[in-house]
Simulated assay, not measured.
Amino acid sequence: MYMKILSLITVAFMTVSASSSAENIYADVQVTELKPTTNVIWKRKNPHTPKYPIELANSGIRGCAVLSFEISASGKTESVEIISSVPKRKLGKSSRKMLQKWHWTPTSKLTEPAAEKRTLRLDFCIDGDSTEQAEEACKQQTLISCK
């Protein structure tokens, strides 16, 4: 299982206010590098946790998506392909849209930037009464297959 070779690059939390109620929804998004995990040419320009899509939070949608994409020689995300997504339709579509907005910066100034093929997993978790509980739910979720 390729989860053993994962390199967790981002874990953070956010509180999403649901428009239909006064209570908070605690959500976590984790980004896990799948391929390559070492010697990468590019890193995300904004390393902060991606924002949990409001429409997913309001609907209580949680799950994961594995995406393949290319980073162009100019640092733009291109050719995003959904490899798998649970649940399929909404989460895959939201993940693709999110990833297409990312910009990248070279990891080294010593080499000329080149295009790079990447695969990553996005985990979307909503759970509990605190960010800590959402984090724990997402840690457990990353151990589950995303198929």
Rank of each mutant, 00 (worst) to 15 (best):
E112R: 13
R89Q: 12
T49K: 11
E78K: 14
K109S: 14
K45Y: 05
K117S: 15
A115R: 10
L91K: 06
R118S: 08
V66F: 09
N24K: 15
M98L: 15
T38N: 09
F69P: 00
E132M: 03
K147V: 05
A137I: 00
D129A: 11
D127V: 00
I41V: 11
M98W: 03
C138D: 04
D28R: 13
T119G: 04
N39F: 09
N58K: 08
L56K: 00
D127H: 15
F69D: 00
P50H: 05
T105Y: 03
R62N: 09
E132S: 12
S94Q: 14
A115D: 01
F124R: 02
A73V: 08
K88A: 11
W104L: 08
L6F: 13
I126T: 08
E136Y: 07
P36Y: 04
E33H: 10
Y2A: 10
A137N: 09
S68C: 07
S95W: 01
S20D: 13
K88F: 04
N46P: 03
E33I: 01
C146W: 02
A65F: 00
A57V: 04
E33F: 13
T15K: 12
E23Q: 08
A114K: 15
Q30R: 14
I54E: 10
F124N: 03
D127C: 07
V86Q: 15
N58D: 09
R118A: 14
Q30I: 04
S108Y: 01
S7L: 07
E81T: 13
K117C: 04
T142R: 15
D129E: 13
T49E: 11
K76F: 11
S95N: 04
C146V: 02
S95Y: 08
L67K: 05
A12S: 14
Y2V: 06
S19M: 03
Q30T: 03
A114C: 01
I83T: 10
S20G: 02
E81P: 03
P47Y: 05
P106S: 04
T142V: 12
C125Q: 13
P53M: 06
L34A: 09
I71G: 06
M14A: 11
I54Y: 07
A12K: 08
V16Y: 05
L122C: 06
S79V: 00
G128K: 06
W104P: 01
S85H: 08
T37V: 14
V40F: 01
V11N: 11
H103I: 02
C146Q: 07
I144R: 14
K76I: 02
T10G: 13
N58E: 15
K51D: 09
L120N: 08
E81V: 09
G128C: 01
G63E: 03
S7E: 09
I126S: 04
P87L: 05
K109D: 11
V40M: 10
M3I: 04
A73P: 06
Y26M: 07
K147Y: 05
F13H: 15
L6G: 14
A18V: 06
F69K: 03
P47E: 08
E23M: 07
A18N: 12
E33T: 00
K76S: 11
T77A: 10
Q140K: 14
K43C: 05
V66S: 11
S85W: 06
